[in-house]
């Protein structure tokens, strides 16, 4: 136990620097992946097959091959075709595109779930397509997507460990560096697990908090019967 604490104290700063990279990767990939995924979802609703077909193919390919293979292809195979990316940009690209495929499915279903009648009401007020999305569809589809996206973020945080394979100095890779230095893996990996757990747990609490706040804002209106006397009752008397 003393061993462990001594070791932890010595290597913790180095590992935390890796953890910081992991958080950076997750946040940036989450942002790009969500935005890209949203536009893919829109594109897949397009009337023209020219847009729909390639996007469907993209989503299928990203979902039906392992993320680690996608990362390896982006980092090692693309340079042969003339596209050379540094390790960090390659990691961001791979993680974002992979996430975008899944996110597009989320938005596809939550956009579809928005009440058709409300769309028609918006259109019948003279709203344009952009206004319809901005004012009616996205506030509802976005809120519905939030818990799922939160779950994806936590998965992403842990998937970031995969980019150690393409030499990004994130948490797991820094741990490997320490181990190759000390020739002792046992305790370091335990420390890595603890750091991952703290990051994921904190994120999930934060997301839960955010969800509750958004849901609460929407529900804070007064109760149905606590307002002024409904006219309904006045009319019944009449």
């Amino acid at each position: 136990m003393l061993d462990f604490l001594a070791e932890a104290g010595e290597y913790l700063p180095f590992l935390l620097r890796g953890a910081l990279v992991t958080i950076e990767l997750s946040l940036v990939a989450m942002l790009f992946g969500t935005v890209t995924g949203f536009f893919i979802a829109l594109g897949r609703r397009a009337r023209t097959r020219l847009l729909r077909w390639p996007l469907n193919a993209f989503v299928e390919i990203m979902r039906d091959t392992p993320l680690i293979v996608q990362l390896l292809i982006i980092y090692f195979t693309l340079p042969r075709w003339g596209l050379t990316l540094g390790a960090f940009p390659a990691a961001i690209l791979g993680l974002s595109l992979n996430l975008a495929a899944y996110v597009s499915e989320v938005f596809r279903s939550t956009i579809n779930a928005v009440d058709r009648g409300q769309r028609e009401a918006a259109i019948s007020l003279g709203m344009s397509g952009v206004q319809l999305y901005r004012r009616v569809i996205m506030p509802q589809a976005g809120l519905a997507a939030l818990p799922i996206l939160g779950g994806y973020f936590i998965a992403l945080l842990k998937d970031c460990a995969l980019v150690s394979f393409i030499s990004v100095n994130e948490l797991l890779r820094n741990a490997s560096i320490v181990i190759s230095d000390t020739f002792d893996g046992g305790n370091i990996y335990l420390l890595v697990a603890i750091i991952y757990f703290i990051m994921s747990f904190a994120s999930s609490r934060l997301i839960l908090h955010l969800e509750n706040r958004l849901a609460h804002n929407r529900r804070s209106g007064p109760d149905r019967m606590s307002g002024t006397v409904p006219t309904m009752e006045k009319e019944a008397v009449r």
Binding site: D115, G117, E120, V136, L143
Partner: peptide, 8 residues
Amino acid sequence: QHFNLFSH
């Protein structure tokens, strides 16, 4: 017929 108010 079904009002279609914006629920949010």
